[in-house]
Design a protein around this nucleic acid. Structure first.
Lengths: 133, 133
DNA sequence: AAAAAAATAATAACTTTTCCTATTTTTTAC
DNA sequence: GTAAAAAATAGGAAAAGTTATTATTTTTTT
């Protein structure tokens, strides 16, 4: 009998590398479409389905972070320290919000609801200084 | 010269009332489609565009609350006390999370980012007790 | 009563994402 | 090393959710 494979086996394809590099090159909370547009310049054969598949795979592997936006296309971010986001209601740009983690969130929910959560995103809405002029 | 009208003038139509009542009747974080389906039983002539238009109008008037979900259709809630939401990753249902407001959020952001926000939604992800069995 | 404004029904269009299918590439089994 | 199996791909269709368009109806203003 063979030993069990616990790890999900995924292949490292050229397309996956291109997607990973594009996210890390843009560093701009890019949408899947923006990432696709960057890659297609160098590698015209790539398809959007492949970009989406690899973005989601990389997110599952915690190699990039998928930020699900409530009012439009999801954004993809390189992995770094924990932070939150604020989206400008006028120009639509997404900015990082460096802030200490809200430490007791998990305990609050558990105490008041008996419900454990696996994750959360907080996206603030406002107007960036430029649009607020 | 006439006096200025500051308030936005909107008409109170039958359709608007039906939408408002449906949201308050369902009380279930209903989607626009679910609200449409409820109304169309009693008033078959209504169109989806009208439902969407009135839902957004009622949200702007703060008569209902539009909860923008990151991974699917927006939900519409009757207005009540401030609370947060948790969405089950399996059955997709949305539950209320009663919890003291995170009071110092606005100050945190201002202090670390110099950025005032106009709003935010926190949506937790997890598995509801039923799906967690 | 006539003109202007707002809301509507119906449908087209749009955006974002997933799904499907045939093909190609990579891995596994022998 | 070769054949069979599995995974990933390109391209395009399809799905989901929402907004925009247009002609018509309803309401308001004058």
């Amino acid at each position: 009998m063979e030993h069990l494979k616990i790890l999900m086996v995924t292949r490292n394809t050229l397309q996956e590398s291109l997607v990973f590099e594009a996210v890390n090159e843009l560093r701009n909370h890019a949408t899947a479409d923006e990432i696709y547009e960057l890659i297609v310049k160098k590698y015209p054969g790539i398809s959007k389905g492949t970009v989406y598949r690899n973005l989601n795979k990389l997110d599952r592997q915690n190699r990039i972070h998928k930020l699900e936006m409530p009012d439009g296309a999801d954004r993809f971010d390189h992995c770094c320290h924990e932070h939150y986001h604020i989206k400008c209601g006028k120009c639509g740009r997404v900015f990082d919000v460096d802030m200490d983690a809200i430490e007791d969130l998990r305990q609050r929910i558990k105490a008041t609801h008996g419900f454990e959560f696996t994750g959360y995103d907080i996206i603030f809405k406002g107007f960036c200084p430029e649009c607020n002029k």
